[in-house]
C-alpha cells in the first residue's frame, strides 16, 4: 500500500469521515421532515405496509409460511428498478404518497446548503 500515492482529496475524505461528519450529515438527511412531521423513513414504512398488505390479500400464505424468505423477496422487489414500487399508486389510499426515492436522495444531495456545509467542515478540518 502506497501511502504517498493516495489522492489527497481522498485522504481528506477519509479524515472527514473519521471525524464523524459524514455520518452526521447522513442522519441529517434521513431525518429531514419532508411533510407533516414525517421523515422519509416513515413515509417509506407506510408505503411498504400498504404494499405488503396488498400482497397478502392476494396470497394469504405469505404470512404463515416462510416469513423470512418472503420478506427478503418482497424487499428485493421493492428495491428493483429504482424503487419502482414505491412510486406506484395502486391504491386509493391517500395516506401514502408515491415516493421517488432516488429523486429524493439526489435532491437532498445536490442541495447547495449541504454543499456549503461540507465545504465548511472541510475547511475547518485542514
Amino acid at each position: 500500500m502506497d501511502k504517498q500515492n493516495i489522492d489527497p482529496a481522498q485522504q481528506l475524505v477519509i479524515d472527514f469521515k473519521r471525524q464523524g461528519h459524514f455520518d452526521k450529515l447522513k442522519n441529517q438527511i434521513l431525518s429531514n421532515n419532508i411533510e407533516n412531521d414525517q421523515n422519509i423513513q416513515d413515509l417509506i414504512k407506510l408505503k411498504i405496509i400498504e404494499i405488503v398488505n396488498q400482497m397478502v390479500s392476494k396470497d394469504e400464505s405469505l404470512i404463515f409460511k416462510n416469513r423470512g424468505i418472503n420478506s427478503a423477496l418482497i424487499e428485493s422487489k421493492i428495491i428493483k428498478d429504482d424503487y419502482k414500487l414505491l412510486q406506484n399508486n395502486e391504491t386509493e389510499n391517500d395516506s401514502t404518497k408515491n415516493i421517488d426515492l432516488n429523486k429524493f436522495i439526489n435532491d437532498s444531495l445536490n442541495d447547495s446548503t449541504l454543499y456549503d456545509e461540507i465545504l465548511q467542515i472541510l475547511n475547518s478540518m485542514d
Binding site: A9, K26, Q41, I48, V52, V56, R67, S71, E75, I105
Partner: peptide, 28 residues
C-alpha cells in the same frame, strides 16, 4: 467524493434499516 459516498450510504441505509424491517414486520 463525499457526496458520492453519501448517496451510496443513504441508499444502503434506507434499504437495510427501513425497507427491510418494515417488510418483515408487516408480514407478521
Amino acid at each position: 467524493i463525499i457526496l458520492k459516498d453519501l448517496s451510496s450510504a443513504l441508499h444502503m441505509d434506507i434499504r437495510k434499516k427501513t425497507i427491510g424491517p418494515a417488510v418483515f414486520d408487516t408480514l407478521n
